[in-house]
Design a protein around this nucleic acid. Sequence first.
DNA 1: TATTGTTATACTCTATAACTATA
DNA 2: TATAGTTATAGAGTATAACAATA
Lengths: 149, 149
Amino acid sequence: MNRRVARVAGIDYLDLEEHLGYALRRAQVASFQAFHRATAGARITPPRFTALVILQANPGISQSTLGEVLGTARSGAMLLIDWLEARGLAERRHRPDDGRAWGLYLTLKGQRVTNDLRRRVRAYDRRFASRIAVDERRELLRLLRRLAT
Amino acid sequence: MNRRVARVAGIDYLDLEEHLGYALRRAQVASFQAFHRATAGARITPPRFTALVILQANPGISQSTLGEVLGTARSGAMLLIDWLEARGLAERRHRPDDGRAWGLYLTLKGQRVTNDLRRRVRAYDRRFASRIAVDERRELLRLLRRLAT
DNA sequence: TATTGTTATACTCTATAACTATA
DNA sequence: TATAGTTATAGAGTATAACAATA
């Protein structure tokens, strides 16, 4: 989180700067820092934000599926839900159809917090992207999605 | 490292996929996985690879400066150099001009390993980028650099 | 048998702060 | 007094494996 992105003066980076992976990493760090500023106060990380949005759009989802979306082991998803539940943002409800799984839901407070965060994150994303033109942003998104497939 | 990138079927991602930060993260994870495959065998991580390249291009650099380049605290740079030194890839030499600082250098083995890794990473980067056209890659690099500033 | 959630454990990365030796 | 390196410590994040309950 304290990670800087700026090039260090007088240092030869060789062909490092020609690597897509390196450029991606640096842009991602810059984006993360902007995200962190945007969500200052709330102790929200990108995975937590993602979980909130996914719960909002997919009420009743299971922890396993959430873990799949986040790309983490189920145990990690569980700890994340513990965290959200301890803050009254999410809740586990028994599922009548499957006694093993929980259905995950946002609480009313969780809804409010998520809506607020979504606004803030959307604003930060716009500000972050303001370094490039609107059609460049669209093109960038398209290329990034292609690489992420 | 086990993190998946694929979209999960049947899940509503809401406006998450419109966020640059989210797209950057996913692309970066995909890139990291490709990097990991490319460097399989060598227990090399992106920061370690960066350190090797920086040492190769900037012999005699200090740990503090290396930490600055990597965006980590000096203690982290130190542990990284410990790791490289233990494997005979880098060495610390006393600096005549400053008794506090070390000068960092690649060993002969470090040179060989770094050259090999650079070849492999360059190849992986090309393969990774093959999902997009050459001029698209150039444009992508340009936009990413702009965002990372 | 397979899957969900849970628990315990461990590992990696990294930050912080205090310390020393030099400058 | 400021800086480079070191050391110790702690925290976050996440993986793995074993287990109970349920399918």
